[in-house]
């Protein structure tokens, strides 16, 4: 028994911590606060999610709307970010001209652009995708840039001694070497993109998880609020797992190095 504990103590501690936390939350919600427009027990949240998933099925349209916005924005930012990042890494002139604009756009809190984009693109899907795009594109761009910049010189020299053409150099050396960097950019972009979805759906949306949360907040519907937040967290975790799988497939040499 003791041995079993010693072997798995981190997992046991984590499990205990989650159980205790949930218990404290339950007691806090039902006994101390006892106000359902303020805080509800995790049991009530679970019951509400069950209801929204299997009984009224009202969660699905929101999930679908949010995922499709996220998907389009994410794909667009990969399509724009990776080539531009490469271009900046390969040409100092492009880098110098683009750099100040990028710094400005990247360090500005994204929310500032939301009303402007809405003004330009209307309250349809276009503005929402643009807001997600704006959140995702910079981590991807910057990481592609870095990935290509820090490619090991020896690889390049090796390619030269094999007399690879410029195109072959790009496809066989530079691109594969920067894949791990691009992937870590994708990982960063995931979280920012989800935040972008929520921001986008606060402005003039009629469906989506962000709308659900926003509306629940306005109407003090705390159980639905928690369901929305949980759904977002789960989407984020799902995305990370998918990316991890992609990483395993795209960079097989890493696994070999580890073992």
């Amino acid at each position: 028994m003791l041995e079993l504990y010693k072997k798995n103590s981190p997992a046991i501690h984590k499990l205990l911590s989650i159980m205790c936390g949930l218990a404290v939350w339950h007691v806090l919600a039902t006994v101390i606060v006892a106000d359902s427009s303020f805080l509800v027990s995790p049991l009530a949240v679970a019951a509400k999610s069950y209801e929204m998933l299997f009984q009224t099925a009202e969660l699905y349209p929101h999930l679908l709307a949010s995922s499709s916005i996220f998907f389009y924005g994410y794909l667009l930012s990969i399509a724009a970010g990776v080539p531009l990042g490469f271009l900046m890494a390969l040409s100092p002139a492009v880098r110098d001209y683009v750099h100040p604009w990028m710094t400005t756009l990247y360090t500005t809190p994204r929310i500032a652009f939301a009303p402007v984009l809405l003004l330009w693109l209307g309250i349809g899907a276009g503005a929402k995708v643009a807001i997600v795009f704006l959140g995702c594109v910079f981590p991807i761009l910057i990481n592609s840039y870095y990935g290509m910049r820090v490619v090991n010189r020896e690889f390049v020299e090796l390619a030269r001694s094999f007399r690879l053409t410029r195109l072959a150099l790009f496809w066989k050396i530079l691109l594969p070497a920067s894949v791990p960097f691009i992937l870590s950019g994708l990982r960063l972009a995931l979280g920012r993109g989800l935040t972008g979805v929520a921001i986008a759906e606060w402005f003039g949306a009629t469906e989506g998880l962000g709308y659900l949360i926003f509306f629940a907040g306005q109407t003090l519907n705390v159980p639905v609020l928690f369901v929305g937040v949980t759904a977002f967290a789960l989407l984020g975790i799902l995305g990370f797992e998918i990316l991890r799988k992609v990483e395993e497939i795209a960079t097989p040499w890493r696994k070999k190095l580890q073992t």
């Binding site: 949360i213 977002f232 967290a233 984020g236 990370f240």
Partner: peptide
């Protein structure tokens, strides 16, 4: 892992 802004409300 929860996007910050979803907990703002």
């Amino acid at each position: 892992s929860i996007p910050i802004i979803t907990v703002v409300p």
